[in-house]
Amino acid sequence: MRARVLIRPKEGILDPQGVAVERALPALGFSGVANVHVGRLVELDVEDVSQLEAMCEKLLANPLIEDYSIERPDAAPQPQDAGPEAPRR
């Protein structure tokens, strides 16, 4: 099963990369941009999707400083599992 893990700086933690991008965009003529954050995308094929959360907690993200969300684009939408999961922590 293909999965994607989106990792971003945790709310409230200063993200200087996001700030730098946010400042660069107006300089190029793009206005109306706010709250820019730069994170990481990890794509992976995984046999047991139930392990994804543990993978995130243990290695892919550092929950102390990062939020993550797990996306499974191939997954058939289930009533209780529609779309990407909400950010953890």
């Binding site: 933690i13 200063l14 200087p16 990369q17 730098a20 550092n62 102390l64 400083i65």
Partner: peptide, 10 residues
Amino acid sequence: PGALLPNVGL
């Protein structure tokens, strides 16, 4: 405890 993040000045 804690974690290390990129320098403020990058």
